[in-house]
């Protein structure tokens, strides 16, 4: 190896574009993506707490952002990310015990986590809108 010329554009390790997509891979990637999204969400939660402590004027701006379409979309994505990361995290707890690793089971639970992430924000929104919680 010493002194050999390095071939250009040599792949170092296989990455996303190399693989045929399958559902457990999607779940794995989504777990990292939603984790990063929730990192942002937790930072926003901290900023929200700081705004509450800072007083009504500072809070008014935060409240305005939350109520705006962008804020509502962000909240929706945060709840969806939380739902996925939660479901898939529990899936990984099961994996830790050695169970659920058969392809059929792993595929099924991956689909469940993804569908749960889609359903959960819609369900919570419906509960808040029509559930009569705040009467």
């Amino acid at each position: 190896m010493a002194g050999a010329t390095r071939p250009q554009n040599r792949p170092l390790s296989p990455f996303l574009t190399v693989w045929r997509w399958h559902i457990t891979m999607v779940a794995s990637i989504l777990h990292r993506v939603t984790g990063a999204v929730l990192y942002g969400g937790a930072v926003l939660l901290a900023l929200w707490l700081l705004a509450v402590a800072a007083g009504p004027e500072a809070y008014a701006q935060v409240g305005w952002v939350l109520a705006s379409p962008i804020g509502q979309i962000a909240l929706y994505l945060l709840v969806a990310s939380l739902a996925f990361h939660l479901a898939n995290g529990i899936r990984h707890f099961v994996f830790d015990t050695g169970a659920g690793m058969k392809p059929v089971d792993a595929d099924l639970t991956a689909w469940f986590a993804i569908l749960f992430a889609i359903a959960a924000p819609i369900g919570l929104w419906a509960l808040l809108s029509f559930g009569g919680l705040h009467r």
């Binding site: 509450v52 809070y59 409240g63 109520a67 939380l82 919570l124």
Partner: peptide, 17 residues
Amino acid sequence: LAAVMLEMHNPGFVSAI
């Protein structure tokens, strides 16, 4: 999630406090 949904009746300053 449950506590915010059940106890925060609106996103305003007073209910946050």
